[in-house]
Design a protein around this nucleic acid. Sequence first.
DNA 1: TATGAATGAGAGTTCATTCAT
DNA 2: GATGAATGAACTCTCATTCAT
Lengths: 208, 208, 208, 208
Amino acid sequence: MGGGKLSRREREKLRQRQDMLAVAIELFSNNGYHNVSMHKIAQEAEFAIGTLYKFFKNKEDLYRSIITEQADIFHETLTRALEEGNEEIDKLRNYVQVKGAVFMDNVSVIRLYFAETRGASFNIKAGLTKEIREDYEGIIQQLAQIFEAGIQKKRFQHIADPYHLALSLDSLSNTFLYLWLEAPKQHPYPDDPDTILNILCKGLVVEP
Amino acid sequence: MGGGKLSRREREKLRQRQDMLAVAIELFSNNGYHNVSMHKIAQEAEFAIGTLYKFFKNKEDLYRSIITEQADIFHETLTRALEEGNEEIDKLRNYVQVKGAVFMDNVSVIRLYFAETRGASFNIKAGLTKEIREDYEGIIQQLAQIFEAGIQKKRFQHIADPYHLALSLDSLSNTFLYLWLEAPKQHPYPDDPDTILNILCKGLVVEP
Amino acid sequence: MGGGKLSRREREKLRQRQDMLAVAIELFSNNGYHNVSMHKIAQEAEFAIGTLYKFFKNKEDLYRSIITEQADIFHETLTRALEEGNEEIDKLRNYVQVKGAVFMDNVSVIRLYFAETRGASFNIKAGLTKEIREDYEGIIQQLAQIFEAGIQKKRFQHIADPYHLALSLDSLSNTFLYLWLEAPKQHPYPDDPDTILNILCKGLVVEP
Amino acid sequence: MGGGKLSRREREKLRQRQDMLAVAIELFSNNGYHNVSMHKIAQEAEFAIGTLYKFFKNKEDLYRSIITEQADIFHETLTRALEEGNEEIDKLRNYVQVKGAVFMDNVSVIRLYFAETRGASFNIKAGLTKEIREDYEGIIQQLAQIFEAGIQKKRFQHIADPYHLALSLDSLSNTFLYLWLEAPKQHPYPDDPDTILNILCKGLVVEP
DNA sequence: TATGAATGAGAGTTCATTCAT
DNA sequence: GATGAATGAACTCTCATTCAT
C-alpha cells in the first residue's frame, strides 16, 4: 500500500510474519485450531519455535491475529462495496460480486472466518469473536439499511423485515460459496450476481 | 420401536449408553470437542472412565456416535416431513416447520450438527462428516425434486435451478434458527413457515 | 499415629505420596527448587509423570506440601519442647536439645526450612513463606516469653530485650547446626545444651 | 586502585561492567537467580544481549562475578576492621559496627551474600561458594584469634571455644541485620555495638 | 464385569546462548 | 566491536487410553 518507507529490516520482518501467518492459516484451516501445534507451524514455516514466539506471544495471539486481520480486510472490502453504486439494487449486486471475489481469493481463511462468524466456534477465547461479530453485524446493518431504503423508495417490495432480508442475502451468497468450496468446477460461484439476487428478489423488485 | 425382545440386561445397557451420549452432547455442545475430556464425560455421567471405554472405543468414536445417531433422527424426521402433504408448497411448509420444531427441541445437538454440515467441522476424522453429508445431500435432493415438481406443475416460477432453490430454502431456515439460537426471545423462529418461504417464494409462486 | 483404620488402598496411596515427597525433598534440598524438574522427581521416585500430577496439582503445590508439612512437624515438636520443664532454663535446654535432635533427623529438609525461614528464599510463591514464618515467629515469641518470665522471676539478668534474646538463642543453635551440617564428625552438635546456652547465658543467669 | 594507567577505552569498559553488575545485583536480589533472565539484565542495563555476553561468558559467570567481587569488598573491609584498635573488645566493637555499616550500604547484595554463606545457595555451580566460604572462614578465624588472645590476656572469660564464640558473634550480628532488613524502622541495627556484644559478652568480659 | 490408578506422548512456552551483520 | 534476531533444548502440565484388580 503506502510508499516504500520501510527499512530493509522492517520489510524482512513483515515478510517473515506473512510467511508464518500464511502457513498458520493453511494449517488451521485444514486441521482446526486444536489439531495444529505451534511446533508444526514453526516447522512448516521453517522457523525455530522461539522465532514464532517472537512474533506472536502465544498460540491464541497467533490465531487472533489471523482472524482479526483477515476479517478487517473482508469487512472493509465489503463495506466499500456497499457504498458504491447509486441504486440499491446495484449496491446489492456489488456486495454479492465482491464477496464472491474476496472469498474466492482467500479460500483457506474463509473456513476460519465462517467458523468465527457463524459456525460453532467455541470461542478460542471469548471476546475474540465479539469484535469480529460486531464488524459482521455492522455489515448486516448496512445491508439492512439498503433494503430499507429500497423499500421506502418503492424500488423493493416489502416482503419481509429488512434485517431478515439482509441476513438472507448474506446467507444465500454463503450457500453458493460453500457449494463452490466443495466442488469449484461443478459449482462455480455465479458470475452474474443476479443469479443469487433473483432467488431473493425475483419477487422483491417492484416491476416498473 | 423395534420388537420388544431386548433382555433386561440389554435394556439397561442401552439406557446407560443413552445417558453417556446425553451428557457428552451437552458438554461438547457447550465447550467444543477439544475442551471436553473423557474424564469429564465419565464423571458427569457418573460412570467410571473404563466403563465409558467399554461403550465407545475412543473419544472420536463417541463423538461420531453422537453426530451420526442424532443426524439420523433429524434426517429421518425431515424426510418424513417432506413426504407429507399433497401440494409442493405444503411439503415445503412442513419442512420449514418440522425443521424448526426438531431443532428447537434439540438445542444442544444442533450446534454440533451445524458444525459438521457447514462450518468449522475440522473432520474430527475425515469420513465422519462424509456419511452425514450424504444424508444431508439426500434431504437437499428431495427438496430439489419438490421444487422441480412444483415448477413442472406450474405451481412455482422457474426463478432458479431447483437444486439451488433447495439449498437456499435450507439456508434461509438455518439463518432463522441461528437468530433464534443467539437470542430466542428477541428473534423467535417464525410460527408461520411462510415468513421464511416468502423470502424465497414471494416471487416464486405463480399467482393463480 | 492413630489406629490402623486406613484401607489397604489408602495406605498404599499414603506410601506412594511419602515416596514422592521423600524423593522431592532430597532433590530440592540438594539442587534447589529451580534445578529440579518434575520429570526428574517422577523418574527418581519411579512413577510416571502423570501419577506425580495426580498427587500434587503442580510443582509449587508439591513444594508447598513439603515445606508446610515438615514445618508443621518442626514447629509442633519445638512448641512442645518449650512447654516441658518448670524452670525457664530447663525449657531453654529442652529447646536447644530437641531442635538439634529433630533437625539432625531431617537433614535434607532443614536446608529447605532454613531457606524459607531465614535465607533468601525468593518466595516460590509469596504467601507460602508467610504461613511458615508466622509459625516460626510464634516459636520466637514463645521463647521471648520464657526469657521475660525468667527475668521477672530474677532467674535471668536483664541483659537484653527478651525478643532479641529469643532470636539470639535460635540463631546460636542454628550456627551449631550449620557447623554440624558441614562437617558432622568434626563439629558435632553439642550433647549438652549448656554448651550453647552458656554463650548466651553465662552472664545471663543470676548466680544464686 | 592500581596505578592510573587505564586508557579511556579501558575506563569506559570498566564503567560498563559496573553498570551491568549493578543492574544484575538489584535484579537477582529482588527476584532470585532463576527469576531473572539475561535479556532482562541486558535490557535494564541498556545494553544489547550480545554485549552482556562479551563481558560475562554466561549467566553463571555473571552471578559468580557479583558474588565474588562483592564478597571481596566485604571481607577486605571486615578484615581491616578487625585489625584496628588495640584492645580485643575494641576490635570486636569495630567488627560489629563496620559490618552493620557495610551491609546497610549494600542492602541488595547482602541477600545474595547471605544466601551464599549460609542459607539456600544451591551452589549455582559447586565451587562458586567454595572461594567465598574460604574468605568467610578467614574472617571467622581472625575473630577466633581475637577471642583467643582476649582470653589469654584474661580480658575475656573462657566461656566457650574461641571458634564457637567467633561464629556466635557473627551469627548474632546477622540476626540483627535480618531484623533490620525485614523492618528497618521497627528494628534498627543498633548504633552501639555493645547491644550485640552484651548478649554474648555480658558474662564474657572479665570485670576489672 | 466394572473400575479407576497409572501411564507417557505430546502440547504450549521460555530463555540461555550464538553468530551473521 | 556491538548488535539483537534466531535458535532449540528443556520445562511444566494435560489427557486419551490401558489393564490389573
